[in-house]
């Protein structure tokens, strides 16, 4: 009786989970179905014939690889800059005393919640004025507006979790402040840094609005606007191709999910929810 209830509960739970995951499953399936099978009525749940032609076409006939490269450069550069600046900034905010520190922490939290559309017009004007619009560089600048407050907030809370005594001990043992930072704090902060870097990378990878407004040449377009363009500009929509692009676009995320998921959950606890 008890086991029956347990089985029933599990079946119900899993059918909900599968329903939530269904769109992603459908994306995968569509991307490996040949074109003719797509329009079959009733649709086939698993493809009758598997094909990777859409992937091949995506890589050889479209700008996908250029977009992909752009996204990699853009997200890596943003992550690198933001995590470096935010790590030092968080150290300063948590472990030093100077005037204005509290208000600065408040400003960080405020900007963390600020909508992009408020900043986008002046940023657009600023970057056009500087003559850097339409470049990956301009996007890196724009992305710091949301990534830096985010990373600072996350790292601040990770930093606060490191016992102050550790740093004090290092100072007594003869380290300078920066020496203690390097020898003791950084190793302790590493999981937090990885977690923050992953979040920053994913945020940058998925960003759409700034890319839409600031870049309109294919040579510096990232994946989000690039792939969306493939949808809009094509005469008749090739869904299999778009699904293949979606799968490819999610590859970094799938890798993170497979190997580094604990860092994602950790970041959740530190930044978003605990606040």
């Amino acid at each position: 009786m008890l086991t029956f209830r347990k089985i029933l509960f599990n079946l119900m739970a899993w059918s909900i989970v599968l329903a939530v995951a269904f769109p992603l499953f459908w994306m995968l399936v569509t991307s490996v179905k040949p074109g003719f099978e797509l329009f079959r009525r009733p649709p086939t749940i698993l493809p009758e014939t598997w094909t990777f032609e859409h992937y091949w076409k995506l890589l050889s006939e479209t700008n996908f690889l250029i977009y992909f490269r752009n996204s990699i450069i853009l997200s890596s550069a943003t992550t690198l800059v933001v995590v470096a600046v935010a790590t030092l900034g968080a150290f300063s905010l948590v472990r030093f005393k100077y005037r204005g520190r509290e208000s600065l922490a408040f400003l960080v939290l405020f900007t963390y919640l600020l909508p992009s559309v408020v900043l986008i017009i002046p940023l657009y004007l600023l970057l056009v004025g500087l003559g850097v619009s339409n470049t990956i560089f301009s996007l890196v600048i724009a992305y710091t507006t949301f990534a830096l407050p985010y990373a600072l907030w996350l790292l601040r809370s990770f930093m606060a979790g490191i016992p102050e005594d550790l740093e004090s001990a290092a100072l007594c043992d003869g380290a300078t402040r920066m020496g203690a930072f390097r020898d003791v704090i950084l190793p302790q902060l590493l999981p937090g840094i990885i977690s923050t870097a992953l979040f920053t990378f994913i945020l940058s990878w998925n960003e759409y609005l700034y890319a839409l407004v600031l870049v309109n040449s294919d040579s510096s377009r990232p994946l989000t606007t690039g792939v969306m363009n493939m949808l809009i500009s094509s005469f008749n929509i090739e869904w299999s191709l778009l699904m293949a692009a979606s799968v490819m676009m999610s590859v970094p995320l799938i890798i993170v999910f497979a190997f580094l998921q604990s860092y994602l959950t950790r970041g959740f606890g530190a930044g978003g929810v605990k606040g």
Partner: peptide, 20 residues
């Protein structure tokens, strides 16, 4: 003087051993 220049050594209640 910085702690390192004072020629002192301190033992902390939490021990503060470097975990790594």
């Amino acid at each position: 003087l910085a702690p390192g220049q004072r020629d002192i050594a301190m033992v902390f209640q939490s021990y503060a051993l470097y975990p790594h």
